[in-house]
Amino acid sequence: MTKIRTTAVRSGMLPVAVLAVLVAGCGSQRPGDTTGAGASSRTPAATPSKPADFPCPGESPTPTPTPSASASGRAVPPTDHYAENHGFMVPIPLHGERRCEGLAAVGRVEDALEPLRRRGDFDPENTRSALTALGYSAGNVQSYQNGSTGVSFLIDASPLCVEGTMNLDSTEADAFAGYPDHTGCDRPSGGH
């Protein structure tokens, strides 16, 4: 019996020791305290800077701002975590010189496809041929029928991606830098 009582006393001491450490805290500095001559003991964390966008050739001096997730003015994240859970499907925007390369690629693609659109030629193979004629490898160009009078396309010229559509009304393309947590230019179907 004595052995059981000793074990009970020893096991009861562990929570008391843990409680004593928690009450004492870890260190004597509290929020708002300063170290030395008014300097903080912590080094400031590097704030990520937004890459500089400058006017590209043929563009006005003030580039068009890219739409942001907070365009509605809400700074509070959604409570259902939809945006967080689907962030892997949001294309990475291009900045700096890559942005200019993307705009130039978009212009070339739209110019190459516009004659097909005016003729009403929405055959995915003809679209693909027009895009490979620009110098893109046939293995990196995908085109799909998009309704009876439309075509969707994707060019994987990694690290530059160009995707778009062509229909009776217009030819539109967009360039981006791929997707987070994913290699290649095709839209990922699952995240982490």
Rank of each mutant, 00 (worst) to 15 (best):
M1V: 14
M1H: 15
T2W: 11
R5A: 15
R5T: 15
T6M: 03
R10C: 12
R10A: 14
L14M: 14
V16F: 05
V16H: 02
A17E: 07
A20D: 03
V23W: 01
V23N: 01
V23K: 01
V23T: 08
A24S: 09
G25Y: 00
C26L: 03
G27I: 01
R30H: 11
P31N: 06
G32N: 03
T34M: 15
G36W: 02
G38K: 03
A39T: 15
S40W: 12
P44S: 10
A46M: 13
T47P: 07
D53N: 14
F54N: 06
P55T: 07
P55M: 10
P57G: 03
G58Q: 04
P61S: 12
T64N: 07
P67L: 11
S68F: 08
S70D: 13
S72G: 13
G73V: 02
R74M: 13
V76G: 07
P77T: 00
P77M: 04
T79A: 09
Y82V: 10
E84T: 11
N85V: 11
I92A: 13
I92Q: 14
I92W: 00
P93V: 08
G96I: 01
E97Q: 10
V106I: 08
V106D: 04
E110I: 12
D111M: 05
D111F: 04
A112W: 00
R117S: 02
R119L: 12
R119K: 14
G120N: 04
E125F: 06
N126G: 07
S129N: 13
A130T: 09
A130I: 03
A130P: 05
A133C: 02
L134I: 03
G135N: 03
S137Q: 01
A138Y: 02
N140W: 04
Q142C: 00
S143W: 03
S143H: 04
Q145S: 12
S152M: 05
S152Y: 04
F153D: 07
I155W: 01
L160C: 11
C161I: 06
V162Q: 02
M166Y: 08
N167F: 06
N167C: 07
N167Q: 05
T171R: 06
T171M: 05
F176M: 04
F176A: 04
A177G: 09
G178N: 06
G178V: 09
C185K: 00
R187C: 10
P188E: 01
G190P: 00
H192I: 09
